[in-house]
Design a protein around this nucleic acid. Structure first.
Lengths: 199, 199
DNA sequence: TATAAATGTGAATACTTTCTCATAACCTGA
DNA sequence: TCAGGTTATGAGAAAGTATTCACATTTATA
């Protein structure tokens, strides 16, 4: 990776490396990044404190590694699902649905991404600006194909991210009194958005 | 307030009490809650470390006090501005505009409210569920007056909070390349939302 | 199986932070 | 002006944490 992370070589080393990561994801989720100590992680993983430093320079390096993994995974998941659907409207809908479903299936990811705003603001900014840029590409295609009004794509990308994130947040924190039928919720959301954006 | 906070009595005491709060708002904004030490606050305020404990039991108590103040202030500001506008659509628009304008005028408030998710999750949940409840009241009036389709008010309240929050976030973090004419941005946002929600 | 590299340990050190407390200065009103 | 409450201080006790390191064990492979 870089001089901050020492990748393991042997089978056992790889198992320990992955154990640290999987354990940290859970501990960060439960205690939050700042309240988590290295001891918290190594104790939960059942390894010695020094073993942590065999692979990671410090807690922040481990956090960044995890954040990066979730970023790639969530994008890959969305891209795959969206590519299997035809039509711009259906693609937008599938994108939002997959995003929310991913957040529900991986509640840890959602927390870790948002927490970046309070760990290293630039990480957060990079994440959302690049997510928005990717979003705009699809929106521009929708406009070109005549399925969407000629809207400000940057603004709309933030509107759609805001909607997805808050619906995801609502479901995750169990705010209000929903059932958790993602598909049904997303249908309602899209119906509300549709006429405002799509011809 | 309660046994966690000792309110000052004299003129000098009140000045110190307010100085601690105003300083903490800035230091929390700059360093984040978890990275801020009591010394950071007292040094920045130019007072002795012990003076802090004269008024606040600990850092969390001070944080909750500040959060509570912002919550009341932002709601009061929105309610006042909304009450001066006629028509449901205009009221919704004024509400969103005031929210975003408040976030721009008080960037500290925005940070402090969001950070609650990583300090005491219940604070965050309480804030947004009660904000949503209040929102729903207005939406129900819009439906009753025939200015809005018969939408799921709870869902729409989260959609509108998501939109406001992300547009606010975009402006605050200076994501993308906007000018900062709030009024103009909100006009565009409402135009996008309008036809989807309002008859 | 011999050897070097990789992996693993947890006590110990150095550092940081919270919070208390003895002490003192300052109001204020009787 | 003097007593009692209020405010202010900062050193230091107590608790916690990151990181190192000498040493031990395991593993790959020649």
């Amino acid at each position: 990776m870089n001089e901050q992370i020492k990748l393991p070589v042997t089978r056992n080393g790889k198992a320990t490396f992955n154990l640290i990561i999987d354990t940290a994801i859970n501990v960060f989720y439960e205690r939050g990044y700042h309240s988590t100590t290295i001891k918290d992680i190594t104790n939960a993983a059942g390894i010695g404190a020094g073993t942590f430093y065999l692979y990671f320079k410090n807690k922040l390096v481990l956090y960044k590694y995890i954040l990066n993994r979730f970023q790639h995974d969530i994008r890959k998941t969305i891209a795959e699902r969206v590519s299997k659907v035809e039509g711009r409207f259906n693609k937008e809908k599938e994108g939002i649905k997959t995003f929310i479903q991913y957040a529900v299936d991986n509640p840890h990811s959602y927390n870790i991404i948002w927490e970046s705003l309070y760990i290293d603001k630039q990480l957060f900014i990079d994440y959302y600006t690049s997510f928005a840029k990717r979003y705009e590409l699809g929106l521009k295609q929708s406009i070109d194909s005549g399925e969407m009004y000629d809207v400000d794509t940057e603004l709309v990308s933030y509107i759609l991210m805001g909607v997805s994130n808050f619906i995801g947040l609502k479901i995750l924190l169990d705010l209000g009194n929903d059932n958790k039928d993602i598909s049904q919720i997303v249908d309602k959301v899209m119906a509300i958005i549709q006429t405002g954006i799509f011809k």
